[in-house]
Design a protein around this nucleic acid. Sequence first.
DNA 1: TGCTCGGGCTTACGTTGTAAGCTTATGACG
DNA 2: CGTCATAAGCTTACAACGTAAGCCCGAGCA
Lengths: 224, 224
Amino acid sequence: MTRPTRKSRKRAPLNRERVLDAAIALADQGGFELLTMRRLANELGVEAMSLYNHVASKDDLLDGMVDLVFAEIEPPSTDGDWKTAMQKRAISTREALGRHRWAIGLMEGRTNHGPANMSLHNAVLGCLRGAGFSMEMTVHAYSMQDAYIYGFALQEVDMSPESAEDFAAEAQRQMCEYQALLADYPHAAEVVGGHIAKVGYDYATEFVFGLDLILEGLDKLRDN
Amino acid sequence: MTRPTRKSRKRAPLNRERVLDAAIALADQGGFELLTMRRLANELGVEAMSLYNHVASKDDLLDGMVDLVFAEIEPPSTDGDWKTAMQKRAISTREALGRHRWAIGLMEGRTNHGPANMSLHNAVLGCLRGAGFSMEMTVHAYSMQDAYIYGFALQEVDMSPESAEDFAAEAQRQMCEYQALLADYPHAAEVVGGHIAKVGYDYATEFVFGLDLILEGLDKLRDN
DNA sequence: TGCTCGGGCTTACGTTGTAAGCTTATGACG
DNA sequence: CGTCATAAGCTTACAACGTAAGCCCGAGCA
């Protein structure tokens, strides 16, 4: 039982988890620059300083948010083909970073790796070791996959417009500049105008293309 | 001649280039969080608001800085082997991002690509097209290389300590936590303690390992 | 000589993260 | 049941940030 006492018309008590969840929700829907201690507190029906009873600082809050994003990533399964396991966790990572587009930006310079991050890290290394990679090759394989995954996510956030209005504005701007583009950057114009404009560009399939190339290449370097 | 007039004891006049250069120098040596309009102005012997005669806003300043970093990257040469050309520009990119560790963090969400960025972009696409890649494969090759390059740079900034003191503090902390690490993350402990602690970890060689694997893989997909 | 105006300077405002201290409900214990 | 410590809220306050508005001075030209 242990109800919160009979006079439960009062708002639910704050705790670290509720703070982090609200922070993630706020950043997800309003953009990262909206995440302000006062606004977050407001969202929770509370004053800014009250948050500091549950997070040590804004940096601590951000660390917590990042680790929650890592917690959303499906760790690789240990049984079955290592390549499909790695592919699935890579895709899961891209999806998580896509749901929380602010996260990739927070990872820069942030050295406090949370438990979810460490745990995922550990699971991936275990998967590779179990697949027969030497320690040296495990390091290579890990480094390579993560570089690709995070780099792809970074580019995706960079280039794909956040909202529909942004997209329209950007398209408009690009059309205006198209003349200059054609003249100054002919190869870019060729590829953009001659290929992407026709067949389009799908981030998801682009992602797995490169991913598979990497995994294939790594597979040939197992046990040696 | 056109000396700045005879009474040249006055300080040199400000201009956009001097502002950007000073901003880069400040961020390089003091860290990105030191880059403040007031401090930057101070560095130039000027008041904060004077900077706004040469940059439209702080965002504009940051855009300009990023493009100057892109300008440091050697574009690929058009003659010779495409793989070595791509390898050289990749290495040049990593080096530039290493000289200016704040740059990779600024690229997130920044959609205003400057001329140096566009020009490099164009040169890389031209190199790939010249090497015989189809338009479709050119897009794949470009996307893949950039994802890897920027992702690697991102990880490098993330994990390598900025200064010697930071490094010492981090090493100390890691030793304290080593027990927990061993227990909770056995595979991570194995790889870190059993391999990296012995042979070390060199970012530069790690970088070219993955890069070469990618370039080799792409080479097999030319002209089809 | 006087006007224009680019490029400095001063002042001021709103917003941010957070330190310091006050208040109040809760739950343990004499 | 009363008392009192403690956790968790609130209020106030401050320094630092980006930048809008407007002043002012000196150089170049009529």
